[in-house]
Every structure is written in structure tokens, then in C-alpha cells.
């Protein structure tokens, strides 16, 4: 129930942002559409309260701000590697522990690793991610515990 309410609110917001035509007829259509999707969502079991918990939504912006800085840093590193006259990379596979209980945080972990250039998640196991790293330096940044700390805060009392 709570999940459906949150979903309706988000979808209604999405509709209003997309539409740009705030006349009665379109607004009614928007309402009908949101109700239809939420009903389908409930009937077909697409998303549930584990998909996007409200408590996580509150903490995500903070995490994203941190991640954005990381993305810029790692981008600069990869850009430097691409323009270097002699190709100086040591591509290799490595494993990273992902000790999180919830699937969602594990997914955020894996996708954050992929979003920072220089590292790509290749496989997800129970508590281990297999990662492909471009250079020694990206490998080191993976092994630093910073991201794990951030994600642990994110996961707290989820």
C-alpha cells in the first residue's frame, strides 16, 4: 500500500514534468494513466517496497553528490590514459567484497563501480563482485574502503 502511494506520487510528478500542458483534459488523462500503471504494477508484481524504499530516497542525494566527485576524478584519470602517447594500461580482473545485506545496495555498489570509468563490474556473486580495472591506480581506488563506508551508511536500518 505504502509502496503504491510512493509510486503514484513519483509517477504523477513525472507526468507533470513531462506534460507541460496543464488543462483539465490532460490532467484527467494523467490521473487515469497513473492509476492504470500503479494497478498494473500491483497486479503484475513489478516493483515492491524493496525496490526503492523511502528511507533510501532520502539518503541518495548525499551519496550521489559524493559519487559525482568520484566520477569526475576517475574520468580525469582515464582521459589522461587515453591521450598518453604511449599506451600505459594494465587491464586486469579483480574481486571486490560487497558485504551488503540488501540486494538494492549491492546493485548500487555494482553500478557505482561501473559508473566510475576505469572500473567495470563484470559479475555479481553473493558477497563478491568481479571487476575489470583499467590501471593499477583504479585498482587501488577500488580497494580503498571509502565506497564501502558510504554504502554502509546508505544501508543503515533499511
Amino acid at each position: 500500500m505504502k509502496n503504491s502511494l510512493v509510486l503514484s506520487a513519483l509517477l504523477a510528478l513525472f507526468w507533470l514534468l513531462l506534460s507541460g500542458h496543464y488543462v483539465v483534459f490532460t490532467l484527467i488523462l494523467g490521473l487515469v494513466s497513473v492509476v492504470l500503471i500503479v494497478w498494473l504494477n500491483h497486479k503484475m508484481g513489478i516493483s515492491d517496497e524493496h525496490t526503492l524504499p523511502v528511507s533510501l530516497l532520502k539518503r541518495l542525494p548525499n551519496y550521489w553528490r559524493w559519487l559525482f566527485v568520484e566520477i569526475i576524478k576517475s574520468n580525469l584519470h582515464v582521459v589522461k590514459k587515453i591521450w598518453q602517447p604511449t599506451l600505459d594500461i594494465e587491464p586486469q580482473f579483480t574481486t571486490v567484497s560487497s558485504p551488503f545485506k540488501t540486494n538494492l545496495v549491492k546493485v548500487i555498489h555494482a553500478n557505482s563501480i561501473t559508473l566510475t570509468p576505469g572500473t567495470v563490474t563484470v559479475a555479481v556473486d553473493d558477497h563478491v563482485l568481479l571487476v575489470h580495472a583499467l590501471t593499477k591506480q583504479t585498482l587501488d581506488s577500488l580497494n580503498s574502503t571509502k565506497m564501502n563506508d558510504k554504502l554502509t551508511t546508505l544501508e543503515k536500518d533499511l
Binding site: 509517477l11 516493483s47 525496490t51
Partner: peptide, 24 residues
Amino acid sequence: PILLNVAQILIPIILLFALYVQFH
């Protein structure tokens, strides 16, 4: 898990986007 979670979030959005396209 990655695909499942991302799809769970995206499917309602894609469906709503489709209805937006239908009615606009």
C-alpha cells in the same frame, strides 16, 4: 540482481512515458 532492480524501477516509468506519448 542488477537487471532485476533496474528493470523494476524503469518499467513503470517506461509505461507511463508511453501513455504520455499516447495522450500528447
